[in-house]
Design a protein around this nucleic acid. Sequence first.
DNA 1: AGCAACTTGACCGAATCGGTGGGGAATCCG
DNA 2: CGGATTCCCCACCGATTCGGTCAAGTTGCT
Lengths: 161, 161
Amino acid sequence: MRISSRGQYGIRALVVLAGRHGRGPTQVREIARVEDLSAKYLEQLLGRLRTGGLVRSVRGARGGYVLARDPVAITVREVLLLLEGSLAPVGCVDEGGTCGDAAGNACVAHPLWRGLHATVLGYLDSFTLADLVPVAAPVEAARAAVPAPAADELVTAATRG
Amino acid sequence: MRISSRGQYGIRALVVLAGRHGRGPTQVREIARVEDLSAKYLEQLLGRLRTGGLVRSVRGARGGYVLARDPVAITVREVLLLLEGSLAPVGCVDEGGTCGDAAGNACVAHPLWRGLHATVLGYLDSFTLADLVPVAAPVEAARAAVPAPAADELVTAATRG
DNA sequence: AGCAACTTGACCGAATCGGTGGGGAATCCG
DNA sequence: CGGATTCCCCACCGATTCGGTCAAGTTGCT
């Protein structure tokens, strides 16, 4: 049940972009510096996100990456789907997955996995990039030295829902 | 977000044992035959489950494996925890996991992952082995040619909850 | 033109995964 | 007792994935 570092890094990178949304492109190097990641590796991830339509790139001097949509309109589910490939816990609940025995009946645990998949997707759908930027106001720059107490509320709310 | 085949196989094996609970030990070979798995591989998994206290083994001729507890008292969460090692989606929400920056603050996505972890654990806790045996009556042998319509109800209920 | 920045794709070491093999050790049955 | 049966343990293996690097090449701003 691991989210690979691709997913984690991708989320972190997009949160940075979300925090600067509307203020021009941000370079890979800058994101890598802020989040302390390998710039080369980040490049790969942003490439996937670009072909997936979540970010747009601006080439040339003073170029960089920009969110393709408002942070409020990008869910964590979308991001992870692009970077992780699939969020299905087992192959047989994925697209075109089969787990039937010879008679074509599904495996005994099929309902279990399907429910788990749905639960996970539902949870990840309830988070958008805007929910993850450290400060509440989307216009203000991130200067927060305080651990953002609103975050805990978010968790419990999402967990309950 | 994958459950490895260890977890899947383990669940399937234990469901077999659950279906025969109270009727003596079942050999690895028999489970492997019924579920069409590699017997040698299954041995390893059952070894883990044994040291984890979920099954007991009986050596010698006519030996095999038996559930250590009633199927109703074994949750899917326990099983997967033993076979998968940890169900934390990312390292930093695991036991002794750290993701703080230099200042010791948690990473921006921490609440996200923590909530996901809690959601998954809660879901997996709501399933026991007894919920997964194909027929409703625990005494009858599995002869069901019908796809068990109760399964769908289970899913939707679990998904909603 | 010249440089900054993205693009593409090969490559790499390590870890994990799914699975096999073989040699015990315990236990039952005759 | 003696052999058959069954679990137990540990080493090993090929393939894949993961995280990450390197080395070109291309595009576009200034």
